[in-house]
């Protein structure tokens, strides 16, 4: 149970960063951290005590495998996270080019 709590603490770090900080790059960092925490939570629920990786071998028969379904979900989620991060970075760089700042409170004042 403590390991789930540590994972939740990591998620709360990301949430705090998203809600509290004003710099756009810091907000992207918070989104990345909370995404990591969610991925970690999925993999934690899949673990089995004394389990092996879900790959069959031709020499020995492996009986005690971990749950492969969350692995498959997380595998797609990681690549989607990279694509959305790149999209966020593109928007942030365009904002910097237009307004000359990363601060979200300054952007509202300068109307282009």
């Amino acid at each position: 149970m403590i390991i789930y709590l540590l994972c939740l603490v990591l998620f709360c770090c990301g949430i705090y960063c998203i809600l509290r900080k004003r710099n756009i790059i810091k907000i992207i960092v918070g989104i990345i951290i909370s995404e990591y925490a969610v991925n970690l939570f999925f993999i934690l629920t899949a673990y089995r005590v004394g389990g092996r990786a879900p790959i069959f071998s031709s020499e020995a028969e492996i009986l005690n495998m971990v749950d492969p379904l969350p692995h498959a979900l997380v595998l797609t989620s990681i690549v989607i996270g990279l694509a959305t991060t790149a999209l966020l970075v593109a928007i942030a760089m365009r904002i910097y080019e237009k307004y000359g700042t990363f601060d979200i409170t300054k952007i509202r004042e300068l109307k282009g």
């Binding site: 990279l82 694509a83 790149a86 970075v89 593109a90 760089m93 365009r94 080019e97």
Partner: peptide, 20 residues
């Protein structure tokens, strides 16, 4: 799909930076 797509994203970001 993944390789070409990520390379296209990176190229787009690099070109934006060089223009700036």
């Amino acid at each position: 799909k993944v390789g070409a797509g990520l390379f296209a994203i990176f190229v787009a970001l690099v070109l934006l930076r060089l223009d700036g």
